[in-house]
């Protein structure tokens, strides 16, 4: 009986696909199609309300002044969030609290590819 099970197992292993992912597959993608992805700003939609920076759990978003605008005779600074991808925990909360959908969670980008400075 045990021999029979063993034989069955051997035959199954012979004809089935290996469980290890092929090298090309591992090298290709980083984000799975369901993952939360990586936050990227869509500057045209952003109003600079800083709701994302206030709610970021790891304080990875800083509001940078990028220019000035004129509202009713007063000059006000224009702020845009900047992401520190080495502090970000990729939770996607910033995209969810944004009222204007100005933050997109992108899965196709390979921002995080380890690189050397040299």
């Amino acid at each position: 009986m045990t021999r029979l099970t063993m034989l069955k197992e051997v035959l199954k292993s012979l004809f089935s696909k290996p469980s290890t992912e092929p090298l090309a597959e591992v090298e290709k993608g980083v984000f799975s199609p369901y993952s939360r992805g990586c936050p990227v700003l869509i500057p045209e939609k952003c109003t600079g309300c800083s709701l994302c920076a206030m709610n970021c759990p790891s304080n990875a978003i800083t509001m940078k002044i990028v220019g000035e605008k004129n509202v009713g005779g007063k000059t006000l600074p224009v702020r845009r969030p900047e992401f520190n991808y080495f502090k970000c925990i990729y939770c996607g909360l910033c995209a969810q609290v944004c009222q204007f959908n100005a933050i997109e969670m992108r899965r196709d980008l390979v921002i995080l590819r380890p690189r050397s400075k040299c």
Binding site: V26, E27, V30, Y85, F86, I89, L112, P114
Partner: peptide, 14 residues
């Protein structure tokens, strides 16, 4: 540096 919380095993592999 491999950022991510946590990074996917594929990223660690790379």
């Amino acid at each position: 540096c491999v950022p991510g919380c946590p990074p996917n095993p594929k990223e660690i592999f790379r």
